[in-house]
C-alpha cells in the first residue's frame, strides 16, 4: 500500500495518466511515443484509475526505468496480484547480450526482482543464467546486491545450452501443437509457482520482433531452438518458426510480462549492433500476445505483420486486439 501511495505521489507530482483505446493509440501519430507527449498536455486525467487499479495492461513512459517499472506493476494491480505469499517464481530475463539495446535494461530487471520479493515470494529462480556482469551494469546494483545474491539460477542454461537430466526435461507429448511436437525445456520453468517473463522489445531478423513470446526460446536448449528454425525441412521458414514459438508458450503461459521498451535496436537484431531507438517505455500485463502487439507498433510494425502475434492470437495464447483490454498509459 505504501508503495502504491509512493507511486501515487510520484504520479501526482510528475506524471499524468490516461486510459486510451486502440484507435486513439494509433491515430495520434502512428507511434506510441507521441501519444504520450499528447497525454502530457492534458493535466489531471486518470487519478481514479490509480486509486482503484484495474488496468490489464500498463505502459509507463519516462527516464527513470527502475521507478517506472514499479509504476507499471502498480498500475496493473501490484505484484501481489500475481505472486502468492511464499511462492517460487521463475524469472526469464532477456539478459544474455552485450551490445547496447539488445538486452533488458538491468534497472528494469532489478525493479522486478525487488517487487517480487516485496510481494512475498519465497524464492526466485532465473530460468536462464543471468551473469553477474549484467547486474553490474545497473546503478541499482550496489543497493540491491543483497537480494540479487539470493537469486537461484539454472546454471547450465547459458547460451548455447545443452541438455542435461538435472536441469532440463524432454517434452515429447505435444501432439496438440500445430508445429512443435517435442522440445527440451528447463524443468524449473514447469515447476515454479509463478512464471514472470521479462523480455526486451527489439528487432529480430527472422521474426521481425523479439518480444514476450519470442523470449520463451530462452527456456529451451539450443538444439531444441535450432529445430524451431530448421525443423520444417525448409531453412528460414518464418511460419514454422513463429508457430513453434507460440506452441512452446502454450506449454505454459507467462503469468506476468514486464517488457522493456526503453532503448532497443530497430535493425540488425537480435544481436545487434544496430540503430538505437529510445521510446523509454515499460509495458506490463499478463497477456503476452497483446503486449507483443503493442511492442510491434512501438517498433514500427502493425501487429498483423508479426507472425508470432497473428499465430498467438489464432492459437488462443492471447488477444492481439489490445484495445479489448483496459490499457492505462502513464507519462512519468
Amino acid at each position: 500500500m505504501l508503495q502504491l501511495l509512493d507511486t501515487f505521489e510520484a504520479f501526482i507530482t510528475n506524471g499524468m495518466e490516461k486510459k486510451i483505446n486502440r484507435r486513439e493509440f494509433i491515430r495520434k501519430s502512428g507511434t506510441l511515443g507521441v501519444i504520450t507527449a499528447g497525454a502530457s498536455m492534458i493535466p489531471g486525467i486518470g487519478a481514479c484509475s490509480l486509486l482503484s487499479p484495474s488496468a490489464d495492461i500498463s505502459v509507463v513512459s519516462g527516464a527513470g526505468y527502475f521507478a517506472n517499472t514499479l509504476k507499471a506493476i502498480d498500475l496493473i494491480g501490484g505484484m501481489k496480484k500475481f505472486i502468492p505469499e511464499g511462492s517460487t517464481v521463475g524469472l526469464l530475463i532477456n539478459s544474455d547480450f552485450d551490445i547496447p539495446g539488445t538486452y533488458v535494461n538491468p534497472d528494469v530487471a532489478i525493479a522486478a526482482v525487488k517487487s517480487i520479493f516485496d510481494a512475498g515470494a519465497q524464492s526466485i529462480i532465473c530460468l536462464q543464467k543471468v551473469k553477474e556482469e549484467y547486474w553490474e551494469r545497473s546503478s541499482y546494483y550496489e543497493s540491491h546486491k543483497d537480494i540479487l545474491s539470493t537469486l537461484k539460477q539454472v546454471e547450465t542454461n547459458v547460451f548455447p545450452s545443452e541438455y542435461n537430466d538435472d536441469d532440463f526435461i524432454k517434452l515429447t507429448d505435444l501432439d496438440n501443437n500445430k508445429a512443435l511436437k517435442e522440445t527440451e525445456v528447463v524443468k524449473a520453468w514447469l515447476e515454479c509457482d509463478v512464471f514472470v517473463n521479462i523480455p526486451i522489445c527489439k528487432h529480430h531478423a527472422s521474426t521481425l520482433l523479439t518480444g514476450a513470446m519470442k523470449n520463451i526460446m530462452g527456456v529451451s536448449t539450443r538444439k531444441a531452438n535450432v529445430t524451431f528454425h530448421l525443423g520444417s525441412g525448409v531453412r528460414n521458414d518464418p511460419d514454422y518458426l513463429a508457430q513453434c514459438i507460440v506452441d512452446q508458450n502454450l506449454v505454459r503461459k507467462s503469468d506476468l510480462c514486464i517488457m522493456d521498451a526503453t532503448e532497443f535496436i530497430t535493425d540488425n537484431g537480435p544481436s545487434g549492433p544496430g540503430t538505437l531507438k529510445k521510446p523509454q517505455k515499460i509495458i506490463a500485463g499478463a497477456d503476452m500476445v497483446a503486449i507483443d502487439a503493442i511492442a510491434a507498433e512501438i517498433l514500427g510494425y502493425s501487429p498483423g505483420e508479426i507472425l508470432c502475434v497473428v499465430k498467438g492470437h489464432e492459437s488462443g495464447l492471447g488477444n492481439k486486439e489490445y484495445s479489448d483490454y483496459n490499457l492505462v498509459e502513464l507519462n512519468a
Partner: peptide
C-alpha cells in the same frame, strides 16, 4: 555453416540466406 546457430543467439538465418 549451421554451427552459426551456436554463435548467434537468433538471427543466424539471415547470414545463412
Amino acid at each position: 555453416d549451421e554451427d552459426l546457430y551456436m554463435y548467434i543467439n537468433g538471427g543466424a538465418d539471415l547470414y545463412l540466406e
